[in-house]
């Protein structure tokens, strides 16, 4: 393994770690709120599940970018990269999804947790809670797309 690959791997690690932290915190927060509602009325679990899982997508986005980088730098496929600037390019490409994922997941989790309240008090309006949480998703998605396009174009 050469230095270029190390830089690229650092990037992949950041993408997976930060987005993963965000999602883990996010799903945890939303699930805590949901558990409170389920303890009162277990039949609402299905509606709550979507809210619980929404902050989980960021981790998935980070994971995908991580895999993509590894596929392109000769770790689990592709040709080994040797140029250090290229390695740093991969590093840079991983930053959007890492940080975007970290912060959007925690923000989304707060919306989702508040949405659990909606489900508890007015189950018929559950879709509105989901819509609200999905609005935050947009920014994770944008970060993911940019990271993806960057990774895709390098090399």
């Amino acid at each position: 393994m050469n230095l270029a690959q190390v830089y690229a791997l650092l990037g992949a690690a950041i993408a997976v770690i930060l987005a993963g932290i965000g999602s883990a915190k996010g799903v945890g927060l939303a699930s805590e709120a949901a558990a409170g509602v389920v303890s009162e009325d277990p039949s609402k679990f299905g509606k709550l599940l979507v809210l619980q899982l929404l902050p989980g997508t960021q981790g998935l986005y980070g994971f995908i970018i991580g895999i993509m980088v590894m596929l392109k730098i000769g770790i689990i496929g592709g040709e080994a990269i040797t140029s250090v600037p290229v390695g740093l390019q991969f590093f840079a490409a991983c930053l959007p999804v890492g940080f975007g994922g970290l912060f959007s997941a925690t923000a989304q989790a707060r919306v989702a947790a508040a949405g659990c309240n909606i489900v508890a008090k007015k189950p018929a309006e559950a879709s509105k809670a989901i819509v609200s949480a999905s609005l935050v998703e947009m920014y994770a998605l944008l970060a993911f797309i940019v990271s993806f396009l960057m990774v895709n174009q390098i090399g």
Binding site: L60, I64, I67, M68, L71, I76, G77, M138, L141, L142, F144, I145, F148
Partner: peptide, 23 residues
């Protein structure tokens, strides 16, 4: 622009799923 962003996301994730499946 979300028309592009979401459209791209579906395809990208689907492709990565296929890559991983073939590993």
């Amino acid at each position: 622009s979300r028309l592009m962003a979401l459209g791209l996301a579906t395809g990208v994730i689907a492709n990565v799923v296929n890559i991983m499946a073939k590993l």
